[in-house]
């Protein structure tokens, strides 16, 4: 009896399956939180960038500015970044900075990291030095200082991949006569992400007394603090 009933159910199921037209669910039907889950499986930032170019909705999910770019932060913690190379800052026989790819090489062309777009040439081969020196690298950005270019900008932050840079003047009372940076560090922006338009710098400088200062792209304000 029980078996009989089960068999009948089975037959009914087979018929029902045949009658239902093939489902035509598309990727556009799935809700944002599932699309998010799928895109979080992309292990390489290169794949994420290409996915972001695919359509407006995907770009919205990836580049969402919610809760401090939560998607990108989660993607980064799931797939920790890899080192793709380092800058070799040499002073002999003349000052030059070249990019050395790590091995095995990342799928990005090493020449993309050339710093030849900075306002003053990096490599000067007539015995003079351009003055740029690498101070810090963080989040794909490079921080350089130039003790010979105080008046234009003592510090410069650049994004080699997009070939953009941002010059940073010292504190208002900071001049070549009065001040000298002891050390400067590149930090994430206030929301925990970093880009050429969103970063912070922490520096210590000497102008007769030791001082610490923080620079933030948000508000483009230079905050001078802690006089010791």
């Amino acid at each position: 009896m029980e078996r009989e009933r089960r068999r009948r159910r089975k037959t009914k199921k087979a018929v029902a399956a045949a009658e239902v037209p093939p489902s035509t669910t598309s990727v556009h039907d799935i809700p944002d939180d599932l699309l998010r889950l799928i895109l979080l499986c992309l292990a390489s930032p290169l794949w994420l960038i290409r996915a972001a170019a695919t359509c407006k909705r995907w770009r919205g999910v990836i580049a969402a500015a919610d809760e401090g770019s939560a998607f990108l932060r989660e993607a980064r913690s799931l797939h920790p970044p890899t080192i793709i190379g380092h800058y070799h800052d040499q002073t002999f026989p003349y000052r030059t900075i070249c990019f050395v790819r790590s091995s095995p090489p990342a799928p990005i062309d090493g020449s993309r990291f050339s710093l030849d777009f900075l306002p003053f040439p990096i490599a000067v081969d007539d015995g003079k030095t351009s003055g740029w020196e690498i101070v810090d690298c963080h989040g794909g950005l490079v921080l350089l200082r130039n003790d010979y270019a105080f008046r234009q900008s003592a510090l410069i932050v650049c994004d080699p991949l997009t070939r953009r840079y941002q010059g940073i003047r010292g504190p208002p009372d900071y001049t070549e006569e009065t001040g000298e940076f002891l050390c400067v560090y590149l930090l994430d922006g206030e929301d925990g992400t970093i880009s050429i338009s969103n970063f912070r710098l922490f520096g210590r400088f000497w102008d007769g007394a030791r001082r610490g200062c923080m620079f933030s792209t948000r508000g483009l304000a230079l905050i001078v603090g802690i006089r010791r």
Partner: peptide
């Protein structure tokens, strides 16, 4: 997560146009 990974596998390594074509945009 099994299905999410499968769909991601269809996306990775492709250009935006290839992704659109593969996923039937």
């Amino acid at each position: 997560s099994l299905v999410a990974k499968k769909v991601a596998d269809m996306i990775k390594g492709k250009s935006p146009m290839e992704i659109r074509r593969t996923l039937g945009f």
